[in-house]
């Protein structure tokens, strides 16, 4: 029992648990024929939530260990510069469709999330937390704080949106006739940021590159749109 008390408070244990849960989730993903709906991120999150609930571990204790994985998001974002450079000529030739798609995507995400949540009677804090849900987590949390949301609730919605976009993105896009990997990557990055970009990288390297670009542009545009809305409404 004392051993468990020690382990449960140790960052090393929760770091290992995070990596293990993800390894199991990836194995399940592989063994079930890499179906999109068995999303490794979503599955790993559910597994770990189960472990925390069963063991009664508070999230901050878990995060003390998991933060070392979380930290790598920053360097990974910086690393997007490499595939961007590799595909630079093609990206330049499609700059206009990319920009237009991200602008339309950012506006659609913002207006539809806020509008639907409001119509369905969500409370003001929930609506504010939901507004930036399609933007990459660190930026979304900053926006949420500015407009009266709860940053950690925003992070949860951002991840939900990400997993959903990773799972349904390829299916929905093919169904509506979008098959160009560049268009698919852009739409997935704009709607569901990094989680769907990771899924797009598994579809095709080009799709992943456009996903990364769309994610970065959408973070910029959404920040700008919300800042403008705040100034306008004031």
């Amino acid at each position: 029992m004392n051993l468990w008390v020690y382990l449960a408070a140790s960052p090393l244990f929760w770091l290992l648990a995070t990596v293990l849960a993800f390894t199991i989730a990836v194995q399940v993903h592989e063994r079930t024929g890499r179906r999109a709906w068995v999303n490794p991120v979503g599955l790993a999150i559910l597994l770990l939530m189960g472990v925390l609930l069963v063991t009664g571990t508070p999230y901050p204790t878990f995060f003390a260990g998991a933060q070392f994985v979380h930290f790598m998001l920053g360097p990974a974002t910086v690393a997007l510069a490499v595939p961007l450079w590799v595909h630079r000529h093609e990206v330049r030739a499609t700059a206009l469709p990319l920009l237009a798609a991200v602008l339309v995507g950012a506006l659609t995400a913002l207006v539809s999330a806020v509008g639907l949540a409001w119509l369905l009677g969500a409370d003001a804090v929930t609506i504010a937390s939901m507004a930036p849900k399609s933007v990459t987590a660190p930026v979304a949390m900053g926006i949420s704080e500015k407009i009266g949301g709860v940053p950690s609730l925003t992070a949860a919605m951002v991840l939900g949106t990400g997993v959903l976009g990773a799972v349904v993105g390829p299916v929905v896009l093919r169904r509506v006739g979008v098959r160009d990997p560049r268009a698919m990557g852009t739409a997935m990055g704009a709607a569901s940021h990094g989680v769907a970009t990771a899924a797009a990288f598994q579809l095709d390297q080009k799709a992943g590159t456009y996903g990364g670009l769309a994610m970065a542009l959408s973070a910029l545009l959404t920040s700008a749109l919300i800042s403008a809305a705040i100034l306008f409404l004031r």
């Binding site: 995070t18 990596v19 849960a21 993800f22 490794p40 991120v41 979503g42 790993a44 999150i45 770990l48 939530m49 925390l52 609930l53 999230y59 878990f62 995060f63 998991a66 933060q67 994985v69 979380h70 790598m72 998001l73 990974a76 539809s112 999330a113 639907l116 949540a117 369905l120 009677g121 969500a122 409370d123 929930t126 939901m130 849900k133 987590a137 709860v150 950690s152 609730l153 992070a155 949860a156 919605m157 951002v158 991840l159 939900g160 949106t161 990400g162 997993v163 959903l164 990094g194 989680v195 970009t197 990771a198 899924a199 990288f201």
Partner: peptide, 30 residues
């Protein structure tokens, strides 16, 4: 890249109460 999103996602456990109350609105809107 996918692995790196897991820690933030587990933060959902902090908001189970709110989500239980507003799951229809939150789920449908998302």
């Amino acid at each position: 890249l996918s692995l790196l999103f897991v820690p933030a996602g587990v933060g959902l456990t902090e908001h189970l109460d709110r989500i239980a109350q507003e799951w229809v609105a939150i789920g449908t809107a998302v």
